[in-house]
């Protein structure tokens, strides 16, 4: 079997997602059934993201798709497609939350934990395979953010912890873009403007889930 970069990337992504799930299961103190439910909700949104990526890719290249469908499907999507798919997935999450079909607090907690740990593993493997310096630097930054997140997990108010992690990630992307002229997230180019927009969007979701003025939930700060 021919090992193409697409296949390598898919395998790294699967390993990273599995690693992130294991770390989440180890970290989170909720009952097992709740954690499983959160992971299923995350997986469902991840599948939505992949489907949106393909649909948007086809729509943006409809004239080529009609003449040469394989050429479009075989071609890796770019950041425009990725950003659009993220925005659509965000709308689905907001819609599900508004209909009461999603526990937004648990979802965001799981999403941030999984994103940090999966990205960390992805960049680590990517660096080992391609000896890419920017992947190494991004991995170090993610490891730092994750360690801060982990050490403070259950020690400070969850809302503040998540906002800190998301804001730090945004700053890291801006710095990486300035130093290396480009930053990537799961091999997609992450432009500073979208990183800021994404971080701001996630922070707004955190605020809406936990309340703007931060009701102090003592049960969340137990360790």
């Amino acid at each position: 079997m021919v090992i193409t970069e697409t296949l390598i990337s898919a395998v790294i992504l699967a390993v990273s997602a599995a690693f992130g799930s294991v770390i989440y299961m180890l970290m989170n103190d909720s009952v097992k059934s709740e954690k499983k439910k959160t992971l299923e909700a995350l997986m469902s949104q991840f599948i939505n993201l992949i489907i949106f990526i393909y649909i948007i890719k086809i729509i943006l290249n409809l004239h080529i798709f009609l003449a040469d469908p394989l050429a479009v499907l075989a071609y890796p999507s770019d950041s425009t497609v990725f950003y659009s798919a993220i925005v659509l997935t965000a709308f689905v999450i907001i819609y599900k939350n508004s209909k009461g079909k999603l526990d937004l607090k648990g979802f965001l907690d799981g999403m941030i934990t999984l994103f940090l740990t999966s990205s960390m593993m992805y960049e680590f493997i990517y660096f080992l395979i391609y000896s890419d310096t920017s992947a190494f630097v991004y991995f170090l930054a993610l490891a730092f953010i994750f360690l801060v997140f982990y050490v403070l997990y259950n020690r400070i108010i969850k809302k503040n912890l998540m906002i800190t992690a998301v804001a730090l990630w945004g700053v890291v992307i801006i710095i990486l873009s300035a130093v290396y002229s480009t930053a990537t997230v799961f091999d997609y180019t992450m432009r500073p403007w979208f990183a800021v927009l994404l971080a701001a969007g996630v922070i707004l979701l955190i605020l809406s889930a936990y309340g703007k003025f931060g009701e102090y939930d003592k049960k969340e700060v137990g360790r």
Binding site: I23, L26, M27, M120, M121, F124, F127, L128, S131, T133, F136, F139, L140, A143, F146, L147, Y150
Partner: peptide
């Protein structure tokens, strides 16, 4: 115990990456 497992895994990844890089 879980705490040490996670810290050890991340520390191991950091050590490996430093070794590879330098």
């Amino acid at each position: 115990m879980k705490k040490y497992i996670i810290i050890t895994v991340v520390a191991g990844m950091l050590a490996w990456s430093f070794y590879e890089f330098f």
